[in-house]
Nucleic acid binder design. Structure first.
Lengths: 266, 266
DNA sequence: ATGTCTTACGGAAGACGTAATAATA
DNA sequence: TATTATTACGTCTTCCGTAAGACAT
């Protein structure tokens, strides 16, 4: 019945309520949106938008169509994304980005039609992203303690180190036994990792980190010491348990292949 | 992502597993189906059909896509049909057809984009049709005793008459009191109305009918007599209670307007 | 040999953008 | 007057059918 470009023009205009922004999002001219929507209204036989040159609003019929069409159309697109292997991936931290890129590269070789967008997530965000469907998979530090998320198994294991201020007397030592942590001012989680390192650098506390941080977050104000006796930091993929999918298992398999193929943590 | 004609070609070919029949159903050439499906497969990045010049079958990916795409696409079309006012209507009996056509004509005036297919149903069929979604609304004799169906109110009320064989001594009388029915061989329901009238004509029994039957089913072998004292026969619209919809209420309203506007039973 | 899917190619429909116009605040 | 939607029109993609080819039974 309706053509794809009509559906997308209608739904986007229903979101934006503005022909210019709609055209921009759809990478066409505003003219096209105007004509497409007009044609769609003729076809449906009812006005879908009230519009003056100053305001755009959905009519009752438009609201009804949007409410019914949006979920259905989303499902259509989800179906083709799944069959084409399109997966969106997030990573946490700089090293994760490096590693994810290698995984995605290998995955793309096997799914040439798949689009695999990669985004960076902050430590505090990734759980929400996965649960809300912002991304399908994320490379995150284990263990995952969020209910509803599933883990794909450890991919990277790295030594745990301690980030301390370069000014701190600790910085002169070779290593710190893990038992000493109890006596040190360990920083609480913050929104971004750089933020926490800045706190470390200013001497407000210390922070246990993975070994890769030494290389990816080298700073003059922060020193990194081995945390002797500590458990290693482990990384792996995570996803929304109920939305698990042929695509995510495929991506997880590829990730483990990349690891076995000699790729190791930074 | 996918174009309408691609989706329809894919889903139809998934049904038919035959390019020729698919092309026929879609009113295009087989060439088009071949090219469209080929393009779709390139776009998705996976073969959707195994095919030789002798056999067509869905691949695993094709099966998956079909299973996910079909319900989503059906929803898209249902949304469009609802907003455009498209309704499918069935009627029972010849007089019902006349009346339904008048209702539909008026309805179409108000919903110029609506397609309103009209079909005839046999007495024994209409409930199944409504429950299965074969049609959205039906004009049927009341009362409706099928659970799950809703009634739109009496539209037509006509005198009840008795169909008897022209050979029967009864045929000579002016009328039959309803009390006498208990002593007469009333025919049980059969698949079609003509079938039952044939039984009446052959003298196997009598049949209470609505007054319009006298005019629409006049036969030399059947005579119609007033059934004095009997309740009238009532007709009205029926629909699937849970799928009730702006369209069916609109159609029901139009039907009542047509009745009030001076249109009466045959 | 026949039925069936695919490739080659010319024609038509319509999707698209630029420029000019109308309408609102 | 400035912003925004609509109309007019020419271009160009691509959808489509006919005819010929390839393939399987």
């Amino acid at each position: 019945m309706l053509e794809r470009h009509e559906i997308e023009a209608f739904l986007t205009l229903g979101d934006e309520l503005h022909f210019g922004r709609t055209a921009e999002r759809l990478h066409v001219s505003t003219t096209r949106i105007s004509q497409t929507v007009a044609k769609l209204e003729r076809r449906v036989g009812a006005a879908l938008f009230h519009r003056t040159s100053r305001r755009v609003a959905l009519t009752e019929a438009g609201r009804q169509l949007r409410d019914e069409l949006r979920p259905a159309w989303d499902q259509v697109n989800a179906a083709v994304r799944r069959v084409s292997g399109t997966v969106s991936v997030a990573f946490v931290g700089a090293a994760g980005g490096q590693f994810v890129l290698r995984i995605v590269e290998r995955y793309r070789e096997r799914h040439p039609a798949a689009e695999v967008p990669v985004r960076e997530a902050q430590l505090g965000e990734f759980a929400t992203w996965l649960l809300d469907g912002v991304v399908d998979v994320a490379l995150v530090p284990y263990p995952i303690e969020v209910p509803g998320l599933a883990a794909g198994g450890v991919l990277i294991s790295e030594a745990r180190m301690l980030a301390v201020s370069a000014q701190d007397p600790l910085a002169a030592r070779q290593a710190v036994p893990v038992a000493e942590l109890a006596d040190l001012p360990v920083l609480p989680p913050a929104a971004t990792f750089q933020e926490m390192l800045t706190c470390v650098g200013s001497g407000r506390g210390v922070l246990p980190v993975g070994a890769h941080v030494r290389r990816y977050y080298a700073r003059p104000d922060v020193a990194y010491l081995p945390l002797t006796g500590a458990d290693p930091v482990e990384w792996g993929l995570a996803w929304h348990a109920e939305r698990a999918d042929a695509r995510v298992v495929a991506l997880n398999r590829v990730a483990h292949e990349v690891v076995r193929g000699g790729a190791s943590a930074a």
